[in-house]
Computed example of a mutant assay.
Amino acid sequence: MSDSLADRIETWMVGQMPIIRMHGGTSVVREADPETGEVVVELGGTCSGCGISNVTATNIKRDLLADFEEVTDVTVRVPSTGDQGASTVEGGRGGELQHETDAADHF
């Protein structure tokens, strides 16, 4: 039995984007719909307010589209207020995020 698209993307994030965790950032796949091809990833922790978070978001979008045939649309959200909470997923990533509107790729 194969892993879900969300599980495969989570595994990909751990392998392809270790720099996020190494710098105290977090990431979590909030949506991964294999039927529509839509994926939503949220960054948090030290990604919040980081001057290169938009570069990281652009790289994630580009690479997910290239590495997953079924993915057709990627949204990477970068909160401007940081990680609020202790709930995490594999690799110390994830958590509940507090959001605030900032710019195009921020909420």
Rank of each mutant, 00 (worst) to 15 (best):
A32W: 08
G85V: 13
E96S: 08
S87C: 07
V76C: 10
V41T: 13
V71M: 04
P18Y: 03
V14E: 15
A103C: 07
S48M: 12
T26F: 05
H23D: 14
V78M: 06
F68A: 01
E69M: 00
G82F: 14
D67H: 13
M13V: 09
A57I: 04
E42D: 08
T101C: 00
M1R: 13
G51W: 10
E96L: 05
I60W: 03
L5I: 15
L64K: 08
W12K: 04
V14G: 11
H99G: 01
F107R: 00
P18R: 04
T26I: 11
V89K: 03
V29D: 09
M13I: 06
G82N: 08
V39F: 08
R93A: 10
T58F: 03
G95A: 05
D83M: 15
R93S: 07
G44P: 08
G94Q: 00
N54H: 02
T46M: 11
T36W: 06
G91H: 06
G15K: 12
F107Y: 02
D7E: 15
V39M: 09
T58Y: 02
T11N: 01
M1N: 10
Q84F: 11
A32C: 06
H23V: 04
V40Y: 07
G91V: 07
P34N: 15
A6F: 05
G94D: 00
L97Y: 08
A66S: 15
L5E: 12
D63M: 04
Q16D: 02
V14P: 01
D3T: 10
A57G: 14
V40M: 08
V78L: 09
T101L: 04
R62A: 06
D83F: 11
V78P: 07
V76F: 10
A104L: 13
E100F: 02
V40H: 10
S48A: 15
W12F: 15
Q84T: 15
R21I: 05
G95F: 04
G25Y: 14
S27T: 00
L5S: 09
S87E: 13
A86L: 12
T58D: 03
G91M: 05
T72S: 12
R62Q: 05
Q84W: 07
G92A: 01
S27P: 01
